[in-house]
């Protein structure tokens, strides 16, 4: 589904990624771990097509070269990024945002736009699954939301847009144990043989709930080590110091 070959990325004349390789197949859950500054969030940003990075190397998503696509086109093709710090956007109503977003994705797939009533029914249903209070949906996007509420809102968007590849950038940070469980349940309930996950995290904590097939350790902009779920537990004990 996703194939990254020899990816390099620079921002403000600083090299962040230095030849990264990664393959993700449908049905797989990959975790990327690594110390601060190893390039984890840069990888997420580059995959989503954020401006400001100079990149080299190949990123293929279902045979399409991602380098040719804008952020919104990637999203429409099924790449979803749950942000580490979801933006607060004053004045933009959450419901309207979600509906606009869903319709943009549907339109790109050649599906019919969804009408307001059907949408409201759908969103209420998804929100209640995640324990999100309905009144959040009529508030301004992420404005005044707590850290946990923002992260839940990200997962809600994921479930609504039904992406093929979901990238979760430190979705566990700032979550208490209950919120963490809700987020993990949200992911697990959406997971199936046709979609894939790339989970970026610092800690083993989230991986206790969402079992990864592969764990990659990122160091100096490259994958320094790859292993199974057991690697996370080992890292928890030994830290990143021994890996380079």
């Amino acid at each position: 589904m996703l194939s990254i070959q020899n990816l390099e990325a620079r921002i403000d004349n600083k090299n962040i990624l230095n030849g990264l390789n990664l393959n993700i197949n449908p049905g797989e859950v990959h975790a990327i771990m690594g110390p601060n500054g190893s390039g984890k969030s840069t990888l997420a940003n580059v995959l989503s097509g954020k401006n400001g990075y100079e990149t080299k190397g190949l990123i293929k998503f279902n045979e399409t070269d991602l380098n040719d696509l804008s952020t919104e086109e990637r999203a429409q093709k099924g790449i979803f990024l749950a942000f580490q710090y979801p933006l607060e956007i004053p004045g933009v109503n959450t419901n309207i945002f979600l509906r606009t977003s869903l319709n943009a994705v549907r339109k790109a797939k050649g599906e019919k736009e969804i009408d307001t009533l059907t949408f409201l029914k759908l969103i209420k249903e998804k929100a209640s699954e995640l324990g999100i209070d309905e009144k959040f949906l009529s508030r301004q996007l992420n404005v005044g939301f707590s850290g946990g509420e923002k992260k839940k809102n990200e997962i809600l968007q994921m479930k609504l847009l039904q992406p093929k590849l979901s990238i979760l950038d430190e979705t566990d940070s700032g979550l208490d144990i209950d919120a963490l469980r809700i987020v993990a349940d949200g992911v697990n309930s959406y997971k199936n043989k046709d979609n894939a996950f790339l989970i970026i995290t610092h800690y083993q904590r989230l991986l206790d709930y969402i079992k990864p097939d592969f764990i990659h350790v990122l160091s100096n902009g490259k994958i320094a080590k790859t292993g199974g779920a057991e690697l996370g537990i080992e890292l928890e004990k030994t830290g990143y110091a021994n890996i380079s």
């Binding site: 919104e72 999203a75 933006l87 956007i89 004053p90 004045g91 606009t100 994705v105 301004q140 996007l141």
Partner: peptide, 25 residues
Amino acid sequence: LHYLKSRGIPEKEAYKMLISGFLGE
């Protein structure tokens, strides 16, 4: 702008959305 675009909203529409949010607030 990037946030909205990453949800599939085309740039032009995202612009308008941000502007009307900015003013409508």
